[in-house]
């Protein structure tokens, strides 16, 4: 039997240095999942299953999954798990997201964004 052709396998991205989190939202999403696990909203096993499922879905949808989209998977898994556990509704998350968007757009650059900013601007 011939050995498998391993040259078709994709290369491993070897970016070595660089910050642990590339953007603040990655750090916040990371910390929220860890904190909720600490508080018992879900177990590590549930977490691993949720993020594993997210990664498989992303790959099926064409994400080359080189590690740089990892926190997108992380965030999607967190949203689904939080909703599945009844800790937040999809509706509330969507509404609050829109509220942050309105607040950001009403906040001058360099100023802290506060919910409801568009009402006081």
């Amino acid at each position: 039997m011939n050995p498998p052709d391993l040259s078709i396998l994709p290369g491993i991205p070897r970016e070595e240095t660089g910050p642990l989190f590339r953007e603040p939202w990655e750090a916040q999403a990371f910390a929220m999942a860890v904190h909720l696990r600490d508080k018992g909203l879900f177990t590590w096993r549930e977490w691993a299953e949720a993020i594993g499922a997210e990664i498989r879905t992303a790959q099926a949808n064409g994400d080359p999954d080189l590690g740089d989209t990892y926190y997108l998977h992380w965030l999607a898994a967190l949203e689904k798990l939080v909703i599945a556990k009844g800790a937040a509704s999809a509706h509330a998350l969507e509404d609050t997201k829109d509220a942050w968007d309105r607040a950001a757009r009403a906040t001058p650059h360099g100023k802290a964004i506060v919910l409801g900013a568009e009402k006081t601007a």
């Binding site: 939202w25 929220m32 909720l36 949203e79 998350l93 969507e94 997201k97 942050w100 968007d101 950001a104």
Partner: peptide
């Protein structure tokens, strides 16, 4: 340029944090 804009993911993260 005068006003802020948050990326879609940043907005999602803020929404989660606020609701929770």
């Amino acid at each position: 340029h005068e006003f802020s804009e948050l990326s879609d993911v940043a907005l999602r993260v803020r929404a989660l944090e606020t609701v929770l």
